[in-house]
Structure formats: C-alpha cells, structure tokens
C-alpha cells in the first residue's frame, strides 16, 4: 500500500459563516499535491456538502481526509442526532434543515445526493442520538 497523507479538521458547528473553510484547505492541499482538477473538484464538493451538513444538523464534527496515490478517502464524523431513515435522507429534495438555512442557500435536500454523485463510494453509518459517520472515496 502506498503512503498516505492524512489531513484532519475540526468543523466548528456554531458558525455557518466559516462552514466550508476545511474544504477550501483540502482543495488547496490537493492542488499542491498535483491532483487533476476533476479529482480535486469531486473531493472538495463532496466534503463541502458534508461540512455544511455537519454545521446544520450536528453542531460540527471532525473531518479526516486520507490521501493515497490511487484514491482519496474522506471521513466525516459527528455526534449529532443521527439519521433515522437513511434511504429517505438520500432522496433528492428531502430535507430536514430549518427554514433559516434555506435563506442561506442550502437545505434543498441535495447535500447527500450530491455527495454520492461526486464520489465513487459512499457509506453512511448512523445511530440515532449518537451520531453519524460518512465515509466517501474518490478514485484517482
């Protein structure tokens, strides 16, 4: 197995304004490492949507990005309310975001579908009342 570079970020759940800063940093790091624009875009969009979700629903969390030569693995962990019905949450347009989030340009029920769309593999593990872990892989 090739060497792995690990990037780790604490996502501040109190601050919608700063949501996405970690994704911007990941994007910059991947660019420095020389990945193609397409791979970088996939990783950064998927992570950005995840970051927004963690801020909206879970009071923040931790994002870990493991960069391998042939793939990039993003793990988003939170201790939020959990997702009771994952297939329902995955439906495009289904949203439980509060109205004030919609006025900020999110909460259209496209976050999880977008994350799935931009990644080659996505796993959601969630326990109601405990939290959610989403693991996404983008092949290089």
């Amino acid at each position: 197995m090739a060497d792995c570079v690990r990037l780790r970020y604490v996502i501040d759940g109190e601050n919608f304004t700063s949501a996405g800063e970690a994704s911007v940093k990941v994007k910059r790091s991947l660019r420095q490492m020389g990945f193609s624009p397409e791979v970088i875009r996939k990783v950064s969009v998927a992570m950005y949507e995840g970051e927004i979700n963690m801020v909206i629903h879970a009071r923040g969390g931790v994002a870990t990005v493991d960069v391998y030569e042939d793939r990039i693995v993003i793990v988003l962990e939170d201790e939020g309310p959990g997702i009771p019905d994952i297939p329902l949450a995955m439906q495009a347009g289904y949203s439980t975001a509060p109205d004030n989030i919609r006025s900020l340009g999110f909460g259209a029920g496209m976050g999880l579908p977008n994350m799935k769309k931009y990644t080659d593999d996505m796993k959601i593990e969630s326990v109601v009342g405990k939290g959610t872990t989403i693991t996404m892989t983008v092949n290089v």
Partner: peptide, 10 residues
C-alpha cells in the same frame, strides 16, 4: 453570504 464564494470556489 460567504457560502456563495465557497460554492463558486469549489
């Protein structure tokens, strides 16, 4: 809001 810029950036 700032998310407009981040979205454009992504």
């Amino acid at each position: 809001n700032p998310q407009v810029v981040r979205t454009a950036q992504m």
